[in-house]
């Protein structure tokens, strides 16, 4: 737990970190970024929270087994979407042209449409869920283990 100034600024800045990370995940098929990058940005926000409030206070509301469940569900969604195109080939983009995320943009530079790209937005969300839960779990577990060592000395 750090001083009150750091805690106030962290609770303000975490909003911007979360919104920026979720924006990168959601618009991964239109703008630079994607699942991995957005998940890393959200996990850096979690690292800011752990530094500012202390890992014991974070651990009251963010348990690592919940994070493992999130990570495993992200992996399962990813592999399930990959198996969805198995009628033609593994990792086939089977939603292009259908009614869900099925618009096809015009060729060349255009302004972009969020209702495009078929299965890619779902894969972005799955990989983003997986990366943010995995990196947050690593940071949380390491912080908890090191504080236990500190108390023992």
């Amino acid at each position: 737990m750090m001083s009150k100034i750091v805690r106030t600024m962290a609770s303000l800045l975490i909003l911007f970190a979360l919104i920026y990370g979720l924006y990168i995940i959601m618009h991964g098929h239109l703008t630079p970024g994607g699942g991995f990058q957005g998940g890393a940005v959200v996990a850096s926000g979690v690292a800011l929270l752990i530094v500012a409030f202390g890992s014991d206070n974070i651990h009251k509301s963010l348990k690592e087994h919940h994070l493992s469940i999130l990570e495993s569900s992200g992996a399962l969604i990813f592999i399930g979407l990959a198996f969805g195109g198995l009628a033609i080939v593994f990792f086939y983009n089977f939603l292009v042209g259908s009614s869900i995320f099925g618009h096809i943009p015009p060729s060349g530079p255009n302004t972009g449409d969020i209702w495009t790209a078929g299965v890619i937005p779902f894969m972005n969300i799955a990989v983003g869920l997986k990366v943010l839960a995995g990196l947050s779990a690593i940071l949380l577990v390491m912080a908890l283990a090191t504080t236990v060592m500190e108390v023992e000395e």
Partner: peptide, 30 residues
């Protein structure tokens, strides 16, 4: 743009044309 419908070609390569590499990366992270 005509095959996958994504404007971002890098994401289209990562998640569609080269999906197996992303599967390996996800396995490593897991």
């Amino acid at each position: 743009q005509s095959e996958t419908g994504a404007n971002n070609a890098v994401t289209a390569v990562v998640f569609d044309y080269r999906g197996f590499d992303t599967l390996g990366e996800a396995t490593i992270l897991f």
